[in-house]
Computed example of a mutant assay.
Amino acid sequence: MPRVRRCRQPGCHAMVNFPDHYCKQHYEHEAEYLASRERWARSHDKLYTHKYNTVTRNRDDTKRQQYNFYRTRQWSHLRQQVLERDHYLCAYCKVKGVITPAKTVDHVVPIEFDEALKANVDNLAVICGKCHRLKTDWEQGYYGTGQGNELRQVNEIHDVQSVGVLMNGGTQRD
């Protein structure tokens, strides 16, 4: 007798043959479910995590020092100070007139571009996940930060409002 299990669709009690997870009626969800399982397994794989930490995150002494800075007591205090100053609200969303709660603290001018500003409270702002992705993409284009890029000789932009406008596709006003 073949092994069977219940269909994963909520409310469906049909039995399916192993290794399938969905019955014929809900089979369109099978590929999506398998992809999500693969993503989860990859993120919880010790080999993948080890490779990320040793090859990508700590690829050279500069990146290793940057990463280690985020594990210091100094950073912990700076981060808490900025979160309280900005009331746990994304500074970049405020530029657009939107209130978004956030817990990530980001450098306005990336420390990869200017190491001297890494512990400067005025160079820190609270940022939500969506804005963080937009800002990282913008920084890679403007400053040339990120793996495989070469740093450019450009003016630093210290104003959160200017960065917020630029990363959302606007133009800078002088």
Results as ranks from 00 to 15, higher is better:
T62M: 07
T62R: 15
T62Q: 13
K63F: 11
K63D: 12
R64D: 10
Q65S: 10
Q65I: 01
Q65R: 12
Q66S: 02
Q66K: 07
Q66E: 06
N68K: 07
N68A: 08
F69K: 10
R71D: 05
R71Y: 00
T72Y: 05
T72V: 11
T72P: 08
T72D: 04
R73V: 13
R73C: 07
Q74H: 12
Q74K: 05
W75C: 03
W75I: 07
S76L: 07
S76R: 12
H77R: 10
H77V: 12
H77D: 01
L78D: 08
L78A: 05
L78I: 13
L78M: 05
R79Y: 06
Q80N: 12
Q81V: 06
Q81I: 08
Q81Y: 14
V82C: 10
V82A: 15
L83R: 03
E84K: 11
E84T: 01
E84I: 14
D86C: 14
Y88C: 14
C90L: 04
A91I: 13
Y92T: 02
C93T: 00
C93R: 04
K94Q: 07
V95Q: 13
V95D: 02
K96F: 04
K96R: 12
G97C: 11
G97I: 09
V98T: 05
I99W: 10
T100R: 03
T100W: 00
P101Y: 15
A102C: 13
A102M: 06
A102F: 02
A102T: 15
A102K: 11
A102D: 06
K103N: 12
K103G: 11
T104L: 09
D106I: 04
D106H: 07
H107C: 03
H107I: 07
V108R: 01
V109Q: 10
I111A: 10
E112M: 15
E112W: 09
F113K: 14
F113E: 15
D114N: 04
D114W: 00
D114R: 08
E115H: 08
E115D: 12
A116P: 01
A116V: 00
A116M: 02
K118R: 15
K118H: 15
A119E: 10
N120C: 11
D122I: 06
N123M: 01
N123R: 11
N123K: 02
N123T: 01
L124R: 01
L124G: 08
L124C: 09
L124V: 07
A125G: 06
A125Q: 13
A125S: 10
I127A: 09
I127S: 03
I127T: 05
C128W: 04
G129R: 12
G129Q: 02
G129W: 08
G129E: 10
G129V: 14
K130R: 13
K130E: 11
C131V: 03
